[in-house]
Amino acid sequence: MPAITRQEVARLAELARIALQPDELDRMAGQLDTIVEAIRTVTEAAGGDVPATSHPIALVNIYRPDVVRPSLTVAQALQSAPAEEDDQFKVPQILGEEP
């Protein structure tokens, strides 16, 4: 049985907010299955006692001085916006229709 079915890809695409077309779902299911098969070996590589590394070089958080720095103007922030109104980003409706 394939690790990643077409149905699984459709669910993942929905989570990732990509409206994949039917032919893409078919193609990607096959490709992802091959890829996951090949990378599955990681599960056998490390025992339970090996700590995880999330970052290559260990650093600790530091704080910058609490002073005001220049930032983008409203015009700069909006200069590549797909839509704007009254100096604000204009977005599509947030909620869908009631069923």
């Binding site: 990378i39 990681v42 590589a45 490390a46 090996v50 700590p51 590394t53 999330s54 290559p56």
Partner: peptide
């Protein structure tokens, strides 16, 4: 855990 977690452990082994 199986995938991302294991991969992060491999990262330790490579280091």
């Amino acid at each position: 855990d199986a995938y991302y977690g294991s991969a992060q452990k491999v990262r330790t082994l490579i280091q």
